[in-house]
Each structure stands twice: as structure tokens, then as C-alpha cells.
Design a protein around this nucleic acid. Sequence first.
RNA 1: GUCCCUGUAGUUCAAUGGAUAGAACACCAGCCUUCUAAGCUGGAUAUAUAGGUUCGAUUCCUAUCGGGGAUACCA
Length: 555
Amino acid sequence: MCLQEIKKIIAQKLDIDSQSLIYPQNHAWGDFSLPIFKLAKENNLSPDLITKKLQDKILSDKELSSILLKTEIVGAYLNFFLKPDYLANKILTDVLKYKDKYGWNNLGQKKVTVFEFSNVNTHKDFHIGHLRNICFGEAMVNIFKANGFCSYPVSYINDFGIHTAKAIWSYKRLYSKDLNKCYAETVKQMNDNPKIAEEVSLIMADIEKHQGKNYYLWKKTRSISLKEFNEVYKKNNIKFKKTYFESQVINKGFKIVKKLIDDNILVKSQGAIIADLEIYQLGVLPIIRQDGTALYPVADLALAEAKELNFKGLRDSYIVVDIRQSLYFKQLAKILSLAGYQQKINHLPYEFITLPDGMMSSRLGNAISYFSLYEKIKDCLIIETKKRHENWSDKKIEKNCQSLAVAILKFEMLKVSPAKIITFDINEAVKFDGFNALYILYGLVRIKSLLKKAKFKNNNKFNGKFLDTKIEQDLIFHLAKYPEVIIRSQQQYDQSEIVKYLFELFQMFNDYYQQVKILSGDPKVLDTRLNFIYSLSLVAINALNLLGIKPLNEI
RNA sequence: GUCCCUGUAGUUCAAUGGAUAGAACACCAGCCUUCUAAGCUGGAUAUAUAGGUUCGAUUCCUAUCGGGGAUACCA
């Protein structure tokens, strides 16, 4: 039984809306609270009278009395206190039983849901903006799964756009494997010399024809990029159910465009092919350039069709792309619906990443690439770890710090709500204090260390009555809230709910760790406390799994 | 110009319309012969402005002022 069910029982017995039961900002005021301003007004009675009536109702009800320790009237609030040992036994039983699936639910009813993310461009760096994208996408796949959806991650790689031709234009002059540098260089030179645009156009035409030297160079440079992307995915333990390439769907896209022109959904204008969506107040979307080369929508139309074909029963397709493209996705969805597609396309937007001194962009060439950042963080971690563990081998330190660096970066991307711009400050990120992945992982290591020293084996020997300190009861209540966090993070498409939850959990645990010496404490309560902290670690690992972050055994 | 998002502490972020607006960083002072001190304890500081709705507004509405973004061939 979880808090929602308890709330439902209370609400039903008292004939109130369970939504009106709130969590007081201070847990000392009670587990739930009912503000009775509204009730008083609706019934035209004084708040005093209402609270007393409700209290009488509670006292005379057998079931409520078995759950509730007491109620208190404070001002116009009726505060409810659950019986601590009742709650402790319920929650610990549930956590130890369901383990890494504690708090999961069935709300999604196995609905097939595809998440498209990591829409990255070859011939450019994989930078921290993309990192936010894959971390967000992966977390959403996991969170949807925890809510009973059949959710699948797919990736789409833009390996065929005009940006590839731009990168190749400079590559032929510089022969640098730094494709992003090539790309930025071409963009820079194009600003000064408009003639270069024509040359880039010719390169793109060759690539589209699949022949000649430019096509060969395209294949060669493309594989450099793909290798890099696969390293990022491997490092971050992200596996896609399917990967689509623009180069593989683009021809199908042109066919669809042709059909849409026949159907009058797309039209020719100023030498280009466009969708005129002015009557829907969605402006105009260019589809094919004057020179006949494709813009984004050509491939996206084919991609929508491909996903429908690959995932039987696909109802909802989520596309994780940053918020600047939200108009574009409204336009795309409109075109698909005009063309009669059944699939529902949802844009899952998130804000971009900016640097303390301004915007970051591949075109300007000032984006922080993933690997440079990762190496920097890892190096700082190695220095700190050496200070703390003089007896650890270099190999062990390297392995530990690799894992930590990945976790820290993921955490930085996930701790802010998707609707917020992340201002990424590398100097802050290498401090490793406070609201950081290390705080969580370190706390978890402390629990693991305690369990190891006590030679703990999961034995279900616990007695809720022994968990009688305030901090233990606060922690139990926090565990009880976890199922609601899983639901909220899905409904609001916001993984940061889970991150906040984890941080609060370990703030409380560190407090507990400081206050109560578990191993040297009262031996009578040792079993209960070991089961208790084991439960904390289970929920923590459960939540870390949803975020795609791997725990460590030692730090 | 039009449309969208956003203004909370020195900084970066919290707060399903409810009680005393929370954290983290930075700064100052403490805590390791005691379960991993990347931890803990204590300390000052904030809702852009003006109205409105409400018993009650950081939250909803309007206006003003700031910041960001989108707006036909960038991605």
C-alpha cells in the first residue's frame, strides 16, 4: 500500500477530494495536511467547526484509527500523522519485495511509444548540447518504462545535409580530421566570399548522386563521425533499438514530397518547394531548396513512415529536439496530418545549453565537445582520488574515475528541468561538492560499506517499531513518496523530479549517518537498521537506473 | 513588427493556489585516535515593477521594464 492509497482511504472516509490533501512544507507538522478554507466556505461553517467534525469522524472510524496516530488542528489546517511503525513495515516490505521495480506502475498499459533522440549531425562535434539530448531522451525512455509503457529509443543521424558538403569543402584544403573545424572554417569563409556557396552546392550535388571524389570523401569523413558517436554511446551505456540515417531515408523522402506536390499539399514558390501553412498560422516551411537539395523535412517525412513500419502498434512518437525547433515540429505535424498519417508526433522539447560568457554553437566553433569535457573532469577526479586512496593502483583509479566522470556529466545534464536553460560552467562542474552526482554516489558507497562490514544478507528481519528516531521516520516517509515521483516525472516529462528526490534522500541519509552510529549502536536494532539502509540503497539504485547512471562500489 | 519562453539570495537552481519562500556554490566559524570528511553542524542575504482575481499569489490574469528564442531556402 502506498501513500496514494492511504490518501484515497482518508479522502473517501472524510468525503473530501484526495487532491486537496497536501504535504506540509515541514514534515514535523504532519504527513498530510488538509487546508479547510474551501470546505468552510462551501459549507458556510466556521473552520473550527469543520475541523472538529472531521476529527470526530476519524476517531469513530476503525480503519482510520488503525492507520492514523493522531490528527492536529493548527489554524485552518487539519494535520494527519500516520502511525510510524505501520508505515515503516509497509514500506520496507514493499521495497524489499519489488527492489529495482519498487514504485513502478502500470499506467501506460503497455502502449508502444518510440523516442527519437540524439539527432546529431555527422561532420560536427558531439558537444554538450547533444549530451543533454541523449541524457534526457534515455531518462524519458526509462521513466516511461517504469510507468508501464513499452518505450523504445531510436536514433536518427543527419549524415546527408548541406553541412556535410560544407565540412568537405574545407577538408579538401586542410586535410584535418577535426571535421567541426572544417565546417566552421567554411561557414566563416562563406560570409566573406559568396562564390563558395556555389562550390558547396556542387559538392552536395555529387554526394546526392552517389558518385565521384566528393562522394568518396563524404563516405570517409562520415565514418570518422560515426566512430566518435558510437564511442559516446558506448561510454554512456546508451543502446538504440534502431538507428536511422538521413542518407538511407532521403530518397524515400523525395518520393513522398513528389506525391505531396501532386496532392497540392506542397507547392512551388520562388523556385523552391514549400508548404504554405499561413492559413493555420504556421507560416511557410521550405522543403527543397532552389538548387534542388533537400532541407530537414524531406527526411523527416520518410522517417515518420519508417518508424510506423518498424514499430507495430506505434501510437505515440516522441521526438527529442531542442525547443528552438518547436515551430518546425508543429509545421511537420500539420503536413503529416494533411497527408493523412495516423501516427501522432510529439515534440519533446528541452532548452539549450549556454556558457557563462554566451551562446555556444557549432557554426561559431566555440561548442564544448563531449570528449574534451569528459577528459577534463576525469583528470580532476584522478587527482582527487589519488589524494584519498594512496594504495589504489593506477588501473583501479582510472576505471573508477571513468565511471564517475560519465555519471557526473549525466547528472549535470539531468538535474535541471528540461524547460530551463543550462548555464554550463566547467569551473563549477569540477568542484565535486554539493548538488552533484558524487554526493549521491558517495552516500551509496557509505551504505554499501556498512552492509559489507556487517556481512549483511537480505533477511527481511526488521521491526518498524525500532525505527523511532525523527530522521528515520522522515526517511521512511521519503521512501513512501517515491511512487508518486515516478508518475510526476512521466506526466511532466521532467526527469529532474527524480534527481531532486535522490538528492533529498541522501541529504537525509548523510544526516542520519552522522547522527546514528549503526554498527556500534544498539545490537537489538541492528538487523532492522541494516534492512532499512539496504532499502534506501535499493530505492537509490532504482532511481539512478531511471536516470541511466551507474552506481559504484567504492569511491 | 508578430509569436513563444523567462525574470526568486552575490551566483546556479527549488517551491501540485496554502502555514516560517528551500537547496547548492562562494564567504566566515566549528567537527576525523570513532561505520569512506568528495561528508556534517552553525551563521547573512531574494520573489523585477504596478495593478487585478482569490479567504489566501513566487505560482493565475493585464500592463510596463529587462533577458533569451523563433519567424522561406542555417540545423
